[in-house]
Simulated scan of single mutants.
Amino acid sequence: MQVLVYGAGQLAQMMYLDGAALGINVMAVDVNNNTVVHPVSKSPLDCTLEQAIELADALTVEFEHVPETLLEQAQASGKLYPGIEAILVGADRVREKQLLSGLDIPNCPYQIVDDLAQLDECVARLGERLIIKASRDGYDGYGQWRLKAASDLPALKTQLANLDLQAVPLVVEKMLNFDREVSLIGARSKSGEVVVYPLAENLHHEGQLHVSVAPATNSTEALTEQACDIFTKLVNGMDYVGVLAVELFQCGDELLVNELAPRVHNSGHWSQAGSPTSQFENNLRAVLDLPLGLAVNTGGEASVSAMINIIGCDDHKLALLGIGGTHLHWYGKTVRPKRKMGHINVTASDYAALGEKLSALAGYLSLEHFPQLQEEAARLAASN
């Protein structure tokens, strides 16, 4: 069986590695030049994009910002999972908000803005503390601005003056005092089978995910049920096939959707070591309509997990592998500031043991690049 992935980054690479164990061949498309490449070596393969589409049993994506012409060609094959509409929802915050509102799914109060003069109305309606997001091409904190006081509005308008808001409107959201961010990742197959992973708790720094812990601490049955209800509404409402990530804000006992990602997701990387079936394998299973694998551990050494992103550096020490239950995943990229270079997965029997392992891990890392690690280690060590 063969799967063609649009995008040739680390997510395609990890799908390839999991697929190989099942005898599934994964190819990737470099969407910058429409070249079919090997997902690990990035070497061009001896076939055209049209031939690769013909050979593949299923097509999928590793990120949502694929040129629409390529998505339309993929959709025409009848093999693209998820479908083009679901992918475009992930690429456009206006479409995303329309979907959430149409399915009556709670999300942050917002207003769509295509003229800077409308920002005054946003302040009057949503309050003076706002998050302003470009509706397309924003990620990892890029394409976002914050308004903390109405007196700063004139300066913000000046900063945004050169944007073409008719082409790319803004989504303006009320800045919430949420307790934490969590995410739910699950998979739905072509035949409608669904599995969901435990809620993960996510810690960010400067707009980027730095640490995920799963299952999230202090997760009640009611909270998990609420997240699963949201996920089920989404996948059924979109007739979705593949892995879907739902990022959520927890405000007291209520969950509000922050963002959707129609693909495997950074906050699910912990599943490589902390789950019987990784998100990457389940994505392949889902798009090929194979039986989905278990997503939840029943106990043992890997009962709790953490994922630590390696961002903008390559100066970690490989001796960290001596910490029990620790796995390194390296992407083979050239170092750049804020670039995700790899990640580390750590598993343990409980949160206290996980905290101890993260504290030990800190000794092998340059902590200026891991600002959340020591604080999270201390929190987990005290949480049992």
Rank of each mutant, 00 (worst) to 15 (best):
A161V: 11
A161G: 08
N162Q: 14
N162L: 12
L163I: 09
D164T: 10
D164W: 08
L165R: 08
A167H: 13
V168L: 05
V168D: 11
V168I: 14
V168P: 00
L170S: 06
V172L: 09
V172D: 05
E173R: 06
E173I: 06
K174I: 07
M175V: 04
N177K: 12
F178C: 13
D179T: 13
D179K: 12
R180S: 13
E181I: 12
E181R: 11
L184Y: 01
I185E: 01
I185W: 01
I185H: 01
A187T: 03
R188N: 05
R188K: 15
R188A: 10
S189K: 03
S189H: 03
S189W: 04
S189P: 01
K190I: 14
K190M: 14
E193Q: 15
E193F: 01
E193D: 13
V194M: 12
V195W: 00
V195Y: 00
V196W: 00
V196P: 00
Y197A: 07
Y197M: 06
P198D: 04
P198K: 03
P198T: 10
L199A: 04
L199P: 00
A200F: 08
E201D: 15
E201M: 09
N202H: 11
N202P: 06
L203K: 12
L203Q: 12
H205G: 08
H205W: 15
H205M: 08
H205R: 11
E206D: 14
E206I: 10
G207R: 06
G207D: 04
Q208C: 08
L209K: 00
L209I: 09
L209S: 01
H210M: 09
V211R: 01
V211T: 11
V211S: 03
T217W: 07
N218K: 12
N218R: 12
S219T: 15
T220S: 15
T220Y: 06
E221C: 07
E221W: 06
E221G: 09
A222N: 08
A222F: 04
A222K: 10
L223Y: 13
L223A: 14
L223N: 11
L223K: 13
L223F: 12
L223E: 14
T224A: 10
E225S: 13
E225K: 13
Q226P: 00
A227E: 07
A227S: 12
D229N: 14
I230P: 00
I230L: 11
I230F: 04
T232G: 00
K233P: 00
L234S: 01
L234E: 02
V235K: 00
V235A: 01
N236I: 11
G237K: 03
G237W: 02
G237D: 07
G237I: 09
M238R: 09
D239H: 13
G242N: 04
G242I: 04
L244R: 02
L244Y: 07
V246D: 00
V246M: 01
E247K: 09
F249V: 11
Q250L: 14
Q250M: 13
C251G: 07
C251L: 15
C251W: 06
G252Y: 13
D253A: 14
D253E: 15
L255A: 04
L255Q: 02
N258E: 05
N258V: 06
L260I: 13
L260G: 00
A261V: 08
P262K: 01
R263I: 02
R263V: 03
V264W: 04
V264Y: 04
H265P: 01
N266R: 05
N266T: 09
S267T: 14
G268H: 02
H269K: 09
H269R: 10
H269S: 10
